[in-house]
Design a binder for these strands. Structure first.
Lengths: 201, 201
DNA sequence: GAATTTCGATACGATTGAGTTTCGCAACGC
DNA sequence: GCGTTGCGAAACTCAATCGTATCGAAATTC
């Protein structure tokens, strides 16, 4: 979006600073990661934190939402590679990665935004789903599908519901708990075993 | 909190208007239900909408968070009574009620707040969990426990994880979908059947 | 009826942030 | 070197909202 077209005509004048752009996006992401909601996020604060002038921001984005959308696009959270040796191993790896991510402040807080502010900032939520949710979901879906194909799971398994149960259970524990108790160390295994139990032939 | 002590001395002067108090709380809840976040919620807007003066608000609550906490306390969402005839029936009834609630704007938006702004407004989230989450959770837990006791479910069922899988799966569908597709009409049944399958003896 | 308190309304100063403009300097093509 | 564009910094106007104060009217106790 902000990247220069390769074959474009070189415009005269000083080129835009890549560094400034990166600093702006980083500052915005950091503030979100610290718990600042999109609504409280002020351009002035972002500029101050990034060490740039407000002009430099307004020259690139016409409003806050566009900036945050671009910031989201810079999120390149690693997606776990699932080995495919067994459905159980894959699912456990997937759930563990999911659990780990909730400790990462950026991912966690941005997940909050996607969850809660999706009605107020629909573009933003859509972008987040596209970048973060969908690819992960595909990884999990294909792991389950492999199990169905290999006969490790029953052929009539309701894949969509199984995915929801697995991911939802982990989300429930990491985001919806009413106490601050430590999560059990083998949480991923327990979730996987409980749900997969019903899916085997 | 705001209610008069029964045996208290009658103070002289004009008594506080119950109607105004209700109007204020209603206005706040409505705005939240419309998608206004706690941060954007302004006392002035609440006063205007409730048709009261700002003084009337400040006389009762010293800040926004206290107001919203009290507003939450007024949430008396009905908790489904589970008949106890079978675990499957109970779980389906519970999940259906959960699904229904996400269509209710108040419940849905307040759930958003509890989910997302819990780090910024911890009191508020705690209150929400106390009023909404915990009672429901107990209802579901006892339904599952009944199943374990009656032998309908295995004795070694991991009740906490089972609850998370059931609630989490429904939450996943109602709040985390990446498309606007209609939810299947028999969603509650499908979730219940998939998960309970693994829990039977 | 007098004292007291709340009511809604309005005005007030202070603060915050948006978005624009101006400034002097830096970086680039020609 | 010259024109052009981007840079950070600062000043500016404009609007929203905060929390407080003040007003006359209304409601209630004594």
């Amino acid at each position: 979006m902000m990247t220069e077209q390769m074959g474009a005509v070189r415009t005269p004048g000083r080129p835009r600073s890549e560094k400034a752009e990166k600093a702006i996006i980083d500052a915005a992401m950091d503030m979100i990661a610290e718990g600042t909601g999109v609504a409280e996020l002020s351009i002035e604060a972002i500029a101050a934190r990034a060490g740039v002038g407000k002009t430099t921001i307004y020259r690139r984005w016409s409003n806050k939402e566009e900036l945050v959308v671009d910031a989201l696009a810079s999120l390149k959270a690693p997606i776990p590679e699932l080995a495919g040796t067994s459905v159980r191993d894959d699912v456990i790896l997937y759930l563990s990665a999911m659990q780990l991510e909730t400790h990462h402040p950026r991912t966690r807080c941005i997940m909050n935004i996607a969850l809660s502010e999706s009605e107020r900032f629909p573009h933003l939520a859509e972008r987040f789903r596209e970048i973060v949710v969908r690819p992960r979901r595909e990884v999990l879906r294909s792991a389950i599908q492999r199990g169905v194909d290999s006969g490790e799971l029953r052929a009539d398994v309701d894949v969509e519901v199984a995915m929801a149960a697995l991911s939802g259970a982990m989300m429930f524990f990491t985001k919806w708990r009413d106490d601050d108790a430590e999560l059990p160390a083998d949480l991923a295994e327990r979730i996987a075993d409980l749900i997969l139990q019903g899916l085997r032939p």
